[in-house]
Nucleic acid binder design. Structure first.
Length: 769
DNA sequence: TTAAGTTAAGTTTTT
DNA sequence: CTTAACTTAA
């Protein structure tokens, strides 16, 4: 144990050997905070004989949790697996899977991701007659999410509206949204935290149980906690709790997700007598990189003063190159990586390309592909967001929780069962009228008015689904998934399609199958619900393994907590980074400080070499946009930068930067916007929350429900089965079958040349001959 | 009822 | 330039 502490510097040691009572560790970038946390855990167990079972360590990402777990395992050995190391969401998930009934939810609840939320919201808006073309689902969801981050439930939200029509409308949507989720026995990400807090508040015995269990709590990335998360920790820790939080206010970059920077700034006030330790020695970067980082971050006003220093040897200056276009920027970065690799300066796996928005990855990817450099893009479209994966997961979700209406809706007609939107709507109405779940309505299809022959199809679906459910009781997840694939003919259908796209999909399904297998292997108490929870909570970044020699591409947000020998920080332009939104924000000052922290995070990812780039023009939504170099570049003193020529000859960078900005001043994109007629659209969509301005639009009745051009079913047809008919395109053929499809006749014709076709009488315009 | 084809609209960051 | 919503055709 002694040698463990010896590898720590005095401040780190002080932090690691703090025993009882609250502690705040202000850990600068690269100051070895994970090492301190893991060493403290080892010290608590080894020296203070704390039971590993009494320790809880919370992180934000699964990757961070995994890394911490690994390091703890190495340090602690015996009993390390009874230490609870998890993210906020999986911690809450575990608690709720056990005690959700205390707040009226089933323990088999489903977790709704962003797509599911949008689906629910679309439905809610339809029910409340809200025109989603003007008032976006996203806007409502953002408002609801912000409320949940602050632990404001619908009733309270309504109370705070004070007659404001806009807030009342959001409150109504919020109420209906929450009701819908509850009915589906489903929670969104925010609910997981919020409902856990509610559970702990409403069920004293549950709170007591966990307080007893978690005698020692540690929280990583504390600067990113929101009010709900803070409340959760506060409840678990108790008044004089042994709570140790680690964070860096300069790296707080999740304000948009409700992160409350006051949680870290006011920690000592909330927990009087808290020990405060600062870790200011950086072990990651060269002095040149730290100087650059400090030069940028010192422009922020609301921060705890600290100065990062390092004993590392001096490295190369920060390189900056301005390019003419985003295209050239991508080419430059890729060429530079190739050259660095050629010189033996950096392996591909040492390089990371960081950017502000996911959209920027496309050009870079293209160039890397062209150059034959191995790469991996982190983030963007999640694996689990793909259609085929969602389809299959919805089968699993529905089996686990048949009340999950989003999942049920999705699978009811996959594969095609001839149950269309009209029939689903009838079943939905029936369910609402009789106050039963959608699935229960399906089981009583014969009682649904106007269902016609679709009732039989629904019965068939219910039988099919029940078979799967009963199998789920005896099969493991892997076997169940195989069964679903087999019985739905999902893969067979894709095989029949034969397109390259279909092949991709089959590969994705194979990947899902192996993910299931992996889950079963590493989870002792595997279950369907457990698998679904794990799947809902993993982010792309979590699956990142190092050492496979790939250049990594990711957003600055994804890069937090990681480090790379060679970092490319791209797209340093006004309007992109800092983002257009932050410049236009009503709290512009605050928003820009967050962007600056993001920039700081990006810079401090670099260990040896940092390369900054900007492009003068960039394609945005199909049109060229001209941007001045980022203000963050301005903030770096000239002498810290090694300004390089683009190698394209035309355009010099830094010397002309100031003049260019002055010249280009009138052409700055955001100013252009506000002086053009187009500006109206922007400000309209931006000010959706503005009181009264567009409020009436929300309340407006739907302009039309139906265009009244329903296809009229003919009283009789001029032909009957066995007749020869002529079709405009298919030529001549024989009618083999005429079925009454309720609204229209479905006619089957065997054509001489075009084969057998099914068509509707009103459209086919067949002529008897 | 469903699929294909056309048009309009939107863009930050994520558990 | 992509994606979602709408139209139209079978």
């Amino acid at each position: 144990m002694k040698n463990l502490l010896e590898e720590l510097n005095p401040m780190q040691r002080e932090a690691a050997t703090h025993f009882e009572g609250p502690q705040l560790i202000l850990a600068g970038a690269g100051s070895g905070k994970t090492r301190v946390l893991t060493n403290r855990i080892a010290w608590l167990i080894g020296e203070k004989h704390v039971d590993p079972w009494n320790i809880l360590a919370i992180t934000f990402t699964n990757k961070a949790a995994g890394e911490m777990r690994e390091r703890i395992d190495r340090l602690v050995g015996y009993g390390s697996d009874s230490i609870w190391v998890a993210t906020f969401h999986s911690t809450c998930g575990r608690i709720l899977r056990r005690f959700a009934e205390g707040i009226g939810y089933g323990t088999n609840f489903t977790i709704y991701d962003g797509d599911d939320q949008k689906t629910v919201m679309k439905d809610v808006c339809k029910r409340l007659n809200i025109e989603t073309r003007i008032y976006k689902e996203r806007m409502f969801l953002n408002a609801i999410s912000s409320a949940k981050d602050e632990l404001i439930w619908p009733e309270e939200y309504m109370k705070t509206a004070h007659g404001d029509p806009e807030m009342i409308r959001i409150g109504q949507v919020y109420t209906e949204y929450q009701r819908t989720l509850k009915k589906s026995n489903a929670m969104d990400f925010d609910d997981m935290i919020g409902l856990t807090v509610r559970l702990l508040k409403e069920c004293p015995d549950v709170l007591e149980y966990y307080r007893g269990r978690f005698a020692f709590i540690m929280v990583d990335e504390y600067q990113d906690t929101n009010t709900a998360q803070f409340e959760l920790i506060r409840l678990l820790a108790g008044r004089n709790g042994n709570l140790c939080v680690v964070g860096d206010d300069d790296q707080s970059i999740y304000r948009f997700r409700g992160a409350n920077i006051r949680n870290i700034l006011n920690f000592e006030k909330v927990f009087p007598g808290a020990a405060v330790v600062r870790l200011e020695q950086n072990y990651r970067s060269t002095p040149a990189i730290l100087d650059t980082a400090n030069a940028v971050i010192r422009n922020n006003r609301g921060r705890k003063k600290k100065t990062l220093w390092t004993a590392n040897p001096e490295g190369p200056k920060t390189i900056y190159t301005a390019l003419d276009s985003a295209y050239e920027e991508a080419e430059y970065v890729v060429r530079d990586i190739a050259q660095a690799a050629g010189r033996g300066e950096a392996a591909y796996g040492d390089c990371a390309i960081l950017y502000r928005t996911n959209a920027q990855s496309r050009l870079l990817e293209e160039k890397l592909l062209l150059a034959g450099i191995p790469y991996r893009i982190v983030g963007g479209i999640n694996f689990y967001a793909r259609k085929e994966i969602k389809d299959l997961l919805c089968y699993l979700k529905a089996i686990d929780n048949p009340e999950d209406e989003v999942a049920m809706h999705r699978i009811i007609n996959i594969p095609k069962r001839g149950i269309g939107a009209a029939s689903i709507l009838k079943a939905e109405t029936y369910a609402a009228v009789n106050e039963i779940s959608f699935y229960e309505a399906l089981t009583k299809s014969s009682q649904i008015p106007g269902m016609g022959r679709t009732a039989a199809k629904m019965d068939a679906f219910v039988t099919f689904f029940e078979t799967l459910r009963s199998k789920a009781r005896v099969l493991d997840v892997r076997a169940l998934l195989d069964e679903i694939l087999e019985k739905t003919g999902y893969i067979k259908e894709l095989e029949a399609e034969g397109t390259p796209e279909a092949k991709d999909r089959i590969e994705n399904i194979d990947e899902l199958v192996s993910k299931v297998a992996a889950y079963l292997e590493h989870t002792p108490e595997a279950s369907l619900g457990g698998f679904l929870q794990e799947v809902s909570l993993v982010a792309d970044i979590d699956t990142l393994e190092d050492g496979n020699g790939q250049v990594l591409l990711m957003t600055l947000h994804s890069a937090k907590g990681l480090e790379f020998p060679r970092v490319y920080l791209t797209g340093l332009e006004e309007g992109l980074f800092p983002s257009y939104q932050s410049i236009m924000d009503e709290n512009s000052e605050e928003a820009l400080e967050e962007e600056r922290r993001l920039c700081y995070v990006g810079i401090t990812r670099a260990m040896k070499t940092l390369i900054l780039t900007s492009a003068r023009s960039r394609m945005v939504n199909g049109s060229h946009r001209y941007n001045a170099p980022s203000r963050f570049l301005e903030e770096i003193p000239e002498e810290l930068l090694d300004v390089r020529d683009s190698g394209y000859g035309s355009y010099r960078s830094r010397g002309s930067r100031d003049s260019q900005r002055r010249d280009g001043h009138t052409a700055l994109p955001w100013e252009e916007r506000s002086s053009e007629g187009k500006a109206g659209n922007w400000s309209d969509s931006r000010s959706s929350f503005d009181r009264g301005k567009t409020g009436r639009k929300v309340l407006r009745e739907k302009p039309y429900l139906s265009k009244g051009k329903d296809v009229q079913k003919a009283d009789h047809l001029e032909y009957s089965e066995g007749d020869r008919v002529r079709h405009v395109r298919f030529g001549e053929g024989v009618v083999t079958k005429i079925a009454d499809g309720g609204r229209d006749y479905e006619v089957t014709v065997e054509f001489e040349k075009a084969g057998v076709r099914k068509m509707f009488a009103a459209f086919a315009k067949l002529q008897k001959i």
